[in-house]
Amino acid sequence: MVSIKLDKVSLVYKLHEKLTLSAPDRRLGATGGRIEGSGRKQFVQALDDVSFELTAGDRLGLVGPNGAGKTTLLKVLYGIYEPSGGTVGIEGKVDALFNINIGFRREATGRRNIVLRGLINGWSEAEIEEKMEDIIAFSELGDFIDLPFKSYSQGMAARLAFSVATALDPEILLMDEWIGAGDASFQEKAKRRMDELAEKAGIIVLASHSESLIQSVCTKRLTLKGGRVESLTTAPTKRARTATKF
């Protein structure tokens, strides 16, 4: 059973260099986590007491101002960061799209990069072979697939990254602000694929500043502020609303 369960998760970034801050008595603004401590012992409380649970089919939208802790939370879910406190329980195969350039080699062709990405994700050679044409077709890169990755535009890179990340039907897909780079038609296509994924009882967690994207994709919404959960609501999506009309 696919599920995510976070219990009182907190995460602290220790700063090893002095932060350059103009005023020592800083007010707590809307931006960023909380800076605490002083001198060489400064740290940022990026997540504080975050608890929630997701089950199969959930599509969670992470929202909040810059520095609220969205990316940090996704990286905790993926397992890159070990939380400083609390527990994380994840059931299911996780795939993530953070920075579209990670794992791509500039000099290698798109095709070779698909192989490298696949290997990094732990796929077998046969799986890569099998999915290769699907991935190329979904990305719509055409002949560019045999050109070096460095000749791709941002959006083309995003297409490739998304196509690879979703090719093997991950059970849990984590995404961070990646979609902005794709054009409208690709965004539409990507949304459909995310729908399929969620219908196959997967979980999607998407961090974004785009209200319309969150509304069209997500069924739940978690608002973070200064590393704390401000609200967790189950919002009816546009699709759900239109669906009830019938």
Partner: peptide, 9 residues
């Protein structure tokens, strides 16, 4: 860095 911060290898 970019691999370590972006993958769980």
């Amino acid at each position: 860095e970019s691999f370590i911060e972006g993958t769980t290898l």
